[in-house]
Amino acid sequence: MQRHSFKVLPAVPLLEVDSVTKRFGGIVALDDVSFDVEAGEIVGLIGPNGAGKTTAFNVITRLYTPDAGHVRFDGEDLLATRPSGVIRRGIARTFQNVELFRGLTVLENVQVGAHARTGDHTVDDALFYVGIGSLRHFQVDGLPFGTQKRVELARALASSPRLMLLDEPAGGLNHEEVQDLAGLLRRLRGDFDLTLLLVEHHMGLVMSVAERVHVLDFGRKIAEGTPAEVQANPAVIEAYLGTAA
C-alpha cells in the first residue's frame, strides 16, 4: 500500500532539511545544516556528542523553531505546522531517554500513540509486531529499559507514520538486543511502509542498517554518503578520533 504515491513521483525527497540554523544564546547548535531523506530509505544521522543530532530531531518535530532555514515534508513546509500537528503529517519519533507515560499501562501508552492515527496500522499491529503483546496490561514504570524502548517504538508505530525518527534506538541495549533491533528495523520498513531516520552512537547498528549516512560535528554537516564512504572519510575520522597532536 503506497500512500500519497502521486506526490512522491516528482522525485521530491520525503524529508528535506534546508540550511537550518538553530542557536541557543551564543551556542550554535545547528549551523546551516542541510540533509534529506528519500521515501523508503533508512538514513543514519551520526556525529560525536554535542554534534546537534537531537537538536535536528527537535527542529523536525517542531519542539524547536529554527533561527533560519526550512524543513519540508513531502514537499510542504513543516515549520507552518504546530507541534501537535506534526504527527498528523505522518512523522513519529522516539527519544534517547524514553519518554513514556509513566503511570499508564503498555496498552494505554500505545493507544495514546494512536491518538492522531493517520494510516491503517492498529494498536494491536504495533504491540505484536514489536513483541510486547503479552505485556499489554503491565504498568510501563517497572519494565526493563530495553522493553520500555520497545513500548516507545510501538507507540510511534501506532500512529501509522510515514517517517519515523529514532533517537538512539540501540542506547542501553546489550549486544544481542542490538542484533534483534537491526532485524526489526529492516523488517519494519517493508511491513509498515516506513522511512527511517536514526540518530545512533552504535556504529555497528548504523553501518548494518543504514543505506545513507549524514555526519554532523559541532553543528555542521561534515560528510554524507554510504556507510563505507563515510567510514573512509578523513574529516569523519578526525571528528571521532581527534587530530594527532
Binding site: S84, G85, I87, R88, A92, R93, V112, R155, S159
Partner: peptide, 8 residues
C-alpha cells in the same frame, strides 16, 4: 511534551 508529539 510527549503528548504534543502524539498529536494531543
Amino acid at each position: 511534551e510527549s503528548s504534543r508529539l502524539v498529536g494531543i
